[in-house]
Design a protein around this nucleic acid. Structure first.
Length: 460
RNA sequence: GGCCCUAUCGUCUAAUGGUUAGGACACGGCCUUCUCAAGGCUGUAAUCGGGGUUCGACUCCCCGUAGGGUCACCA
């Protein structure tokens, strides 16, 4: 566990996004680390919507923040809306002006309108300030080149630097976890904290995340809002797991964790200082691992969500569906892939008799040696014999093993490449599919016999 | 450009002066095999460069180089 010097204080962390765009995975990773840190210290995690930029705020972005936090299961103890605290901001603004820490500055508007604004600037004492950063250690920065920075647009419109400090102060925030892009803001915040008599919280500036192209993660440039992954059927616990591994590593080589295990083992002070690249390929692997750990009923539900109603309406669906889960588990990395399979026509044959060009029955790459010219007519006795063999299997004993056992010897004798390929195509109508025994088991005895008869008919 | 931060396989990372530089994803090969997957075995692959300090540097220091952050009446 982390050792901090604030044992006597209740730990409060916060996530403070501005709804000016879709927040990306990098933002949610800082939210995740803030949440974990609070949990580890029996503290609380709060959400604050920083909506002081009226021109760029959008309700849909704000809604997306709630949705994503809910999906990722990062519950916040309290929610604050920054714009509802303007009175508090103004109170400290006046206090700072009265105490000489800030002053009103009449300046021409930058938008070229020629209008004169009454900005409020912080009177910079031009000193070196230092603060504790859990990841970087003590950071010291000279504030001289910061100048007298603006803290309010006018007496009624406080800006970011003031609002952040006042809100963190009033909410009792003890640990501020945020992106590395805020390191240079921190000395300003420390200056304001001193001016209003607020304690300096501990900071942790997390390295930024990059896309595979090594560009900064932003809602433009291909970085998708996290809810996109929800739509594709990714598991929130997998996303949490993957995100936690970006910049942090457990002491052993274990990589797949439940949320509880992560909370138990995570160590903020061991987080990497360098930026990390978000790799969707590894996320897929982590997601598959979590899918495999799901109870079978949840797995089935996950798959069902992505199968079209048309397919689900087919009479055979209810009976066949549970039997196909096993083969799906070997393939799917995220549930949405099932939809892609259906679109590609790789799902239908489980539930209905496929139609295909009979020539495909003969395309096996490894035909029996010494039989150079095989024709469709040669397949006739093969289907007849296979049909006989399979018909002998008792309905109650219809499973992958028994099917394999009944056909195997004959296939060896005739050439596996010939028999099994033909059998598989007759069942799936595809060049690529699960093996014929698994397929026969999944579609059931009667459908198997029906499909083989159909194949036999097609080559007469 | 000023100030600040960072630098181990393609990617995520382990090794806080002494290891054959470890693991995972990805990639290759082999096995299995009727196809596609899955699975098993296995392989390729890294300490940015140059100087120091030291008996000994991935590790500490300096200088480069590269990448990033920031320099708003945004947050």
């Amino acid at each position: 566990m982390n050792k901090t010097s604030t044992e006597n204080l209740k730990v409060v962390t916060r996530f403070a996004p501005s709804p000016t765009g879709y927040k990306h995975l990098g933002n949610y990773r800082t939210a995740l680390f803030s949440y974990i840190f609070a949990k580890q210290h029996n503290g609380s995690f709060i959400l604050r919507i920083e909506d002081t930029d009226k021109a760029r705020n959008k309700k849909e972005f704000e809604e997306n923040i709630y949705e994503t936090l809910e999906w990722l299961r990062l519950p916040y103890e309290k929610k604050y809306i920054q714009s509802e605290h303007i009175e508090a901001h103004k109170k400290y603004l006046h206090q700072m002006i009265n105490s000489g820490h800030a002053y009103i500055s009449k300046e021409e508007a930058k938008d070229g309108s020629g209008k004169i604004n009454e900005l409020v600037r912080f009177k910079n004492p031009n000193i070196k300030v230092s603060f504790i950063d859990i990841i970087r250690g003590t950071v010291e920065i000279d504030t001289t080149d910061l100048g007298d920075f603006v803290i309010a647009k006018n007496l009624d419109e406080p800006l970011f630097h003031l609002a952040v400090v006042v809100d963190d102060f009033e909410a009792g925030v003890t640990h501020v976890l945020r992106g590395e892009d805020h390191v240079s803001n921190t000395p300003r915040h420390v200056l304001i904290q001193r001016a209003i008599g607020a304690p300096v919280p501990q900071y942790a500036h997390l390295p930024l995340l990059f896309t595979t192209e090594r560009s900064k993660m932003s809602s433009r440039k291909g970085a998708l809002p996290p809810t996109h992954y929800r739509e594709l059927g990714y598991l929130p616990e997998a996303m949490i797991n993957y995100l936690s591994l970006l910049g942090w590593h457990p002491s052993d080589d274990k990589e797949i964790f439940t949320f509880e295990e992560i909370i138990e083992r995570f160590d903020l002070s061991k987080v990497q200082k360098a930026s990390a690249v978000f790799d969707e390929v590894k996320l897929k692997w982590v997601n598959k691992e979590h899918m495999l750990r799901l109870p079978i009923s949840e797995y089935e539900e996950g798959v069902k969500r992505f199968i079209s109603p048309e397919l689900k309406k087919i009479a055979a669906f209810i009976e066949v569906f549970p039997r196909m889960i096993g083969t799906l588990r070997e393939r799917l990395q995220y549930f949405g892939e099932i939809k892609e399979m259906e679109t590609a026509g790789e799902l239908q044959y489980f539930f209905m008799i496929p139609s295909y060009d009979p020539a495909l029955l003969l395309c096996a790459p490894k035909m029996r040696k010494g039989k150079e010219e095989v024709t469709l007519t040669d397949l006739k006795p093969i289907f007849e014999k296979t049909l006989d063999l399979l018909a002998e299997i008792n309905e109650s004993n219809w499973n992958t093993e028994s099917i394999k056992k009944s056909v195997w010897a004959y296939a060896e004798e005739q050439g596996r490449g010939l028999v099994l390929w033909a059998l598989r195509v007759a069942l799936s109508g595809k060049e690529r599919s699960p093996d014929p025994f698994t397929l026969a088991y999944i579609v059931g005895k009667s459908s198997t016999l029906e499909r083989l008869s159909a194949a036999l008919k097609s080559i007469q």
